[in-house]
């Protein structure tokens, strides 16, 4: 491929890619469906919610930074197991993870999201948006919850979710890529594998377009997270420097 036309891939190759990426996803998804069921979708009680709400802003920010960082470590492991990712140059591996790891965390969030109650698994139980009030980012939190809800409404299978996560991570239009063409080829193959799975699962034609729309929503969520972090850091530079996880600081330039 010269980058303009999709690469030629055999059905067997697509099936293999689906298998590898689905396996990588299941091995690194942090919580298995069975584990989630055992958590019995238990919600925080009102006094527990209030305890989170009365935490100092910087304490709640630190807690969320820790939880995001834990989730990102699993995404890094997912990336490493995607066929072709480790063959990219180190610069591009770093560029893709810096730009895409939080996006994949947001994609994966639909697995731990209860649409009916508008709650997400956090710190041991299911939490509504009000739990995160102390962060002082109500608008961002509402958008993250809305995004998770809209992802849930697509009812993606684990295979579909795995391939969409890989597609998001291998975005060839990220700034500072050195071997853009190689990333592009890999992303095109993943897109073909995603289309293949959607067809095999007899999903309606519109699902792929709906997923494409999610890509821009994810970028918006991540740039808003960066803005909120900058605003927080301007007020609490020492907290970020001394109390935030080093990986979080590396990824988000804190």
């Amino acid at each position: 491929s010269n980058g303009d036309s999709p690469p030629t891939v055999s059905m067997a190759e697509l099936d293999h890619l689906v298998q590898i990426i689905s396996k990588s996803h299941l091995e690194t998804c942090q919580y298995l469906r069975e584990e989630l069921q055992q958590m019995s979708w238990q919600n925080f009680l009102q006094d527990e919610v209030e305890r989170y709400q009365s935490k100092p802003r910087e304490v709640m920010w630190q807690l969320c930074a820790v939880k995001i960082t834990e989730a990102i470590q699993y995404v890094v492991e997912f990336a490493k197991r995607i066929d072709g990712f480790m063959d990219l140059c180190q610069n591009d591996q770093i560029v893709l993870l810096k730009a895409g790891s939080l996006e994949v965390v947001f994609v994966r969030m639909c697995r731990v999201f209860d649409s009916q109650n508008n709650t997400v698994y956090f710190d041991g139980k299911f939490a509504g948006p009000d739990v995160f009030k102390a962060l002082g980012c109500d608008d961002l939190i509402t958008s993250v919850f809305d995004f998770a809800k809209s992802m849930c409404s697509l009812h993606l299978t684990e295979d579909e979710l795995a391939l969409f996560s890989a597609f998001v991570l291998l975005s060839a239009d990220r700034s500072w890529l050195q071997e853009k063409l190689q990333v592009e080829k890999l992303q095109q193959k993943i897109q073909l594998a995603l289309q293949h799975v959607l067809q095999k699962n007899q999903r309606e034609d519109g699902v792929l377009n709906k997923l494409r729309c999610k890509v821009s929503a994810l970028r918006s969520l991540c740039s808003r997270h960066t803005e909120k972090l900058s605003a927080f850091r301007a007020i609490y530079p020492d907290i970020v420097r001394t109390h935030f996880p080093p990986l979080y600081k590396e990824l988000f330039g804190a």
């Binding site: 091995e27 470590q73 890094v76 492991e77 490493k80 180190q90 770093i94 810096k98 990986l247 590396e250």
Partner: peptide, 20 residues
């Protein structure tokens, strides 16, 4: 490299938090 020390480590490690 220094700027992304931990990411480099995670990428190079064969054992990871996931395996542990």
């Amino acid at each position: 490299k220094e700027k992304h020390k931990i990411l480099h480590q995670l990428l190079q490690n064969s054992t990871s938090p996931v395996d542990l």
